[in-house]
Amino acid sequence: MVDEEKSVEPVRVNKWDSNAVKNALDDAVKKALAKKFDWSEKHSLTDGRLFISFIAVCFAGFALVWDYLHPFPASRPILIICVLSYFVLMGVLQLYIWYVEKNVFYQAVDEDPTGKLPTSYWTWSSKLKKYDDM
């Protein structure tokens, strides 16, 4: 156990890059929580983001195949619909990240092994101002 702690190198981050500092701190908290508690990680927010992205990519892929099968002048209405749908879904994805995820970087499920207590759900989020040096 002591050898493992000595072999881990410290994370080096440019202190003026606020996104890198925030991500490094988030990762450190995630590792500490995973090491200390026997919780399973919940991926529902990431799954939601992946689902929205998957639908957007399906629209783009359908437009690509349709344009291949029916060259441009004939495929114009379908391309317009698919491109608009793609950009609307990217807007939905951005709203999902802002209002549903809310800077959440870790979700955990705490299940009671005896089954007597209800399952607890833990969520950690962080926020760092863009040009904050603290």
Rank of each mutant, 00 (worst) to 15 (best):
M1S: 09
E4A: 14
E5P: 02
K6F: 09
S7P: 00
V8C: 08
P10Q: 04
P10H: 06
P10N: 15
V11N: 02
R12Y: 10
V13H: 05
N14M: 14
N14G: 10
K15C: 02
K15T: 04
W16D: 13
V21T: 01
K22M: 01
D26P: 02
D27G: 12
K30D: 14
A32T: 06
K35E: 01
K36P: 00
F37S: 01
F37G: 00
W39H: 04
W39Y: 12
E41C: 00
E41P: 00
K42N: 10
K42G: 03
H43N: 04
S44P: 02
S44L: 06
L45A: 06
L50F: 02
L50D: 05
L50Q: 08
F51I: 04
F51Q: 14
S53Y: 06
F54V: 00
I55M: 09
V57L: 12
C58G: 01
F62P: 10
F62Y: 14
F62A: 07
L64M: 04
W66K: 02
Y68S: 09
H70K: 08
H70C: 10
F72Q: 10
F72L: 10
P73L: 15
A74G: 01
A74V: 07
A74S: 10
S75C: 15
R76K: 15
R76P: 02
C82T: 11
V83N: 07
V83T: 10
L84G: 03
L84E: 05
L84Q: 04
L84Y: 11
S85A: 12
S85F: 02
S85C: 11
Y86K: 07
Y86P: 07
F87K: 10
F87D: 04
V88Q: 13
L89N: 02
L89T: 12
L89D: 07
M90Y: 05
M90W: 01
G91R: 05
W98T: 03
Y99N: 12
Y99F: 15
Y99H: 08
K102Y: 03
V104Y: 01
Y106P: 01
Q107T: 07
Q107D: 14
D110M: 08
P113Q: 06
P113M: 00
T114C: 08
T114P: 01
T114Q: 13
G115K: 12
L117G: 09
L117C: 09
P118Y: 11
T119P: 02
S120K: 14
Y121K: 11
W124F: 15
S125A: 07
S126W: 03
K129Y: 07
D133E: 06
